[in-house]
Protein backbone atom coordinates (compact mmCIF):
# COMPACT_ATOMS: atom_id res chain seq x y z
CA UNK A 1 0.00 0.00 0.00
CA UNK A 2 1.00 3.62 -0.42
CA UNK A 3 0.68 6.01 2.52
CA UNK A 4 -0.96 9.38 2.03
CA UNK A 5 0.28 12.38 3.99
CA UNK A 6 -0.64 16.05 3.69
CA UNK A 7 1.73 18.98 3.38
CA UNK A 8 0.14 22.45 3.37
CA UNK A 9 -3.06 21.01 1.98
CA UNK A 10 -1.43 18.93 -0.75
CA UNK A 11 -1.36 15.14 -0.72
CA UNK A 12 2.11 13.59 -0.55
CA UNK A 13 2.38 9.85 -1.17
CA UNK A 14 4.96 7.77 0.70
CA UNK A 15 6.26 4.27 0.42
CA UNK A 16 6.13 2.42 3.78
CA UNK A 17 9.66 2.63 5.16
CA UNK A 18 10.48 5.98 3.56
CA UNK A 19 11.26 9.02 5.69
CA UNK A 20 9.07 12.12 5.64
CA UNK A 21 11.90 14.02 3.90
CA UNK A 22 12.34 11.32 1.25
CA UNK A 23 8.61 11.37 0.47
CA UNK A 24 8.62 15.17 0.16
CA UNK A 25 11.67 15.16 -2.12
CA UNK A 26 10.21 12.34 -4.22
CA UNK A 27 7.10 14.52 -4.64
CA UNK A 28 9.28 17.36 -5.94
CA UNK A 29 9.04 19.39 -2.72
CA UNK A 30 12.61 20.50 -1.95
CA UNK A 31 12.03 22.98 0.87
CA UNK A 32 9.54 23.14 3.72
CA UNK A 33 10.66 25.85 6.06
CA UNK A 34 12.31 29.27 5.96
CA UNK A 35 15.15 30.66 8.04
CA UNK A 36 14.13 33.12 10.72
CA UNK A 37 16.66 35.82 9.77
CA UNK A 38 16.66 36.03 5.98
CA UNK A 39 13.63 33.90 5.20
CA UNK A 40 15.72 31.57 3.05
CA UNK A 41 14.17 28.24 2.03
CA UNK A 42 15.47 25.10 3.75
CA UNK A 43 14.90 21.42 3.09
CA UNK A 44 17.13 18.36 3.13
CA UNK A 45 20.88 18.88 3.45
CA UNK A 46 22.82 16.29 5.48
CA UNK A 47 20.04 13.72 5.23
CA UNK A 48 21.19 11.87 8.36
CA UNK A 49 20.03 13.91 11.35
CA UNK A 50 23.10 16.11 11.83
CA UNK A 51 22.31 19.53 10.34
CA UNK A 52 18.70 20.28 11.46
CA UNK A 53 18.02 22.08 8.16
CA UNK A 54 15.03 19.83 7.51
CA UNK A 55 13.06 20.67 10.67
CA UNK A 56 9.32 20.28 10.19
CA UNK A 57 6.11 20.16 12.21
CA UNK A 58 4.73 16.61 12.27
CA UNK A 59 1.15 16.11 13.47
CA UNK A 60 1.44 19.37 15.38
CA UNK A 61 4.83 18.56 16.97
CA UNK A 62 7.32 21.23 15.86
CA UNK A 63 11.06 20.83 15.34
CA UNK A 64 11.21 17.25 14.09
CA UNK A 65 13.97 16.22 11.69
CA UNK A 66 12.14 15.21 8.50
CA UNK A 67 15.06 12.99 7.47
CA UNK A 68 14.59 10.81 10.57
CA UNK A 69 10.80 10.64 10.96
CA UNK A 70 9.35 7.58 9.23
CA UNK A 71 6.41 8.41 6.98
CA UNK A 72 3.02 7.22 8.20
CA UNK A 73 -0.42 7.16 6.69
CA UNK A 74 -2.45 10.27 7.43
CA UNK A 75 0.49 12.31 8.73
CA UNK A 76 0.04 16.09 8.70
CA UNK A 77 3.30 17.83 7.75
CA UNK A 78 4.28 21.47 8.20
CA UNK A 79 2.13 24.23 9.65
CA UNK A 80 2.95 26.89 7.07
CA UNK A 81 4.95 28.97 9.51
CA UNK A 82 7.90 26.69 10.21
CA UNK A 83 11.06 28.70 10.73
CA UNK A 84 13.03 26.15 12.69
CA UNK A 85 12.69 28.57 15.58
CA UNK A 86 11.92 26.87 18.84
CA UNK A 87 9.08 28.16 21.00
CA UNK A 88 11.11 27.29 24.09
CA UNK A 89 13.97 29.57 23.08
CA UNK A 90 17.23 29.19 21.18
CA UNK A 91 19.32 26.06 21.17
CA UNK A 92 18.53 22.39 20.91
CA UNK A 93 15.68 22.18 23.40
CA UNK A 94 12.27 20.83 22.57
CA UNK A 95 8.77 21.36 23.77
CA UNK A 96 7.81 18.56 26.03
CA UNK A 97 5.79 15.97 24.11
CA UNK A 98 3.12 13.77 25.67
CA UNK A 99 5.15 10.63 25.15
CA UNK A 100 8.02 11.89 27.22
CA UNK A 101 6.34 13.52 30.19
CA UNK A 102 7.81 12.10 33.32
Amino acid sequence: MTYRMTFRGATVPAEPGQSVAAALVAAGILDWRTTRKEGRPRGLFCGIGICFDCLITVDGVPGERACLVPAADGMRLGDGTDTGDDPAGPGPGKEDGDAASA
Binding site: Q18, A21, A22, V25, L30, R42, G43, F45, C46, I48
Partner: peptide, 22 residues
Amino acid sequence: DLPGVMAAGGVQALLKGHRTLA
Protein backbone atom coordinates in the same frame (compact mmCIF):
# COMPACT_ATOMS: atom_id res chain seq x y z
CA ASP B 1 22.22 26.65 1.06
CA LEU B 2 19.93 26.48 -1.98
CA PRO B 3 17.42 23.63 -1.89
CA GLY B 4 18.80 20.84 -4.07
CA VAL B 5 22.29 21.10 -2.60
CA MET B 6 22.94 18.18 -0.26
CA ALA B 7 25.74 16.43 1.55
CA ALA B 8 27.07 13.59 -0.60
CA GLY B 9 26.36 11.12 2.18
CA GLY B 10 22.81 12.41 2.45
CA VAL B 11 22.23 11.80 -1.25
CA GLN B 12 23.46 8.27 -0.78
CA ALA B 13 21.38 7.81 2.38
CA LEU B 14 18.27 8.81 0.41
CA LEU B 15 19.10 6.23 -2.25
CA LYS B 16 20.13 3.35 0.00
CA GLY B 17 17.87 4.04 2.95
CA HIS B 18 14.77 5.46 1.29
CA ARG B 19 14.86 4.34 -2.40
CA THR B 20 14.65 8.02 -3.30
CA LEU B 21 16.51 9.81 -6.05
CA ALA B 22 17.05 13.43 -5.03
